[in-house]
Design a binder for these strands. Structure first.
Lengths: 184, 184
DNA sequence: ACCGGCAGGCTAATGACATTAGCTTCAGGG
DNA sequence: CCCTGAAGCTAATGTCATTAGCCTGCCGGT
């Protein structure tokens, strides 16, 4: 090796900082290079191009979020676990809105593996409702859709009316919970 | 006026065509100008800049979608209306995935007005469940979150497993419906 | 202590774009 | 028939991403 001032991980660190402070749109290689105190082309020694940097970023964020969701759900089950999971999800996004948007901006990416983890967590929570196999998959998709939809809309400022967002979110969780119990 | 070959609406038309065929990422003023058979700077006589074009596009798409959702729900009520609404929503996105992504790519934009329409439709459907005022607002947010989350994830290819998506969507609708009935 | 390779940084150059400035032209009202 | 302004155009600038090719200091082996 040589002067180890940079590495793919370090580049992602700098990118993360830029995103946190100035939003996804501000993520340019020039900005990252400036952050890192390096000339732009030097970054290509560590990441293939901007697209790859976005993928790495995406994977990093998804893993970080999965960690927090799994920690929240750990040791609980049923409605308790569902509640904890959903709360942790929303809290993460409100804490790091730009990161979440950076995560979802890439259609799919190498995030697949990291995505598996999230699914695993959702399935674990659903086991508390006695769901297995296909039923659990369908339920996990719904959980994901509902959670994702809500936090994206909230973080994007789509909910303009004065009604309390906490109450809306409670209702959403109630819908999931009640839908999981009542037969179709 | 003068040679009326172009107008803000016509520019949006061309942009829409590019998006449909090549996706949101391909939307550049150069591409739109080429589509329109005009030099790039000429577009500035009709739209202020790229950001404004995106906003106009966003509003156009949201209105188009709202039209279809309201038509679907018209004349039905309760679960029938909910079902028709959700199906129309998903169908629209599957038919024009790129348009939907173009619509949501702008955080907020001048889409506010168009957004009111969508909310109105959702509230109308919810009236079939006896919901009014604040309760209806909360429910509308949940409807929107669930629907939006699902279609975004589906269109983005996030649901990789072989389980049938129709069944997952059925479950989602069931969750909403059952959550709207059962007390909290 | 010396040498060679190479990882990792750098400068220069290219090509897409967005955006601005300023010129030209035609259509329509007086 | 002239005059004005809308709608096009060309030229120029600045920001980015990306590529090519150069330079250097660190490390392992002699």
């Amino acid at each position: 090796m040589a002067r180890a001032s940079l590495s793919p991980e370090a580049v992602v660190d700098h990118a993360l900082r830029i995103i946190d402070e100035q939003g996804v749109a501000a993520l340019t290689l020039s900005a990252v290079a400036a952050q890192a105190g390096v000339a732009t082309p030097s970054l290509y020694k560590h990441v293939r191009n901007l697209a790859e940097l976005r993928e790495l970023l995406s994977a990093r964020v998804m893993n970080e979020m999965s960690d927090q969701l799994s920690e929240a759900a750990l040791g609980r089950s049923g409605d308790q676990a569902l509640r904890a999971l959903m709360d942790a999800w929303r809290a993460y996004v409100l804490r790091h809105p730009h990161r979440y948007f950076a995560m979802i901006q890439t259609p799919d990416a190498g995030r697949a593996e990291a995505g598996e983890r999230l699914i695993g967590i959702l399935l674990a929570v659903l086991r508390g409702y006695g769901l297995e196999d296909s039923d659990a998959i369908h339920a996990a998709r719904c959980l994901r859709a509902a959670g994702h939809g809500f936090v994206v809309l909230e973080a994007g400022g789509a909910f303009g009316l004065p009604e309390k967002l906490n109450e809306s979110y409670d209702l959403l969780i109630h819908m999931i919970s009640s839908g999981l119990r009542t037969p179709r």
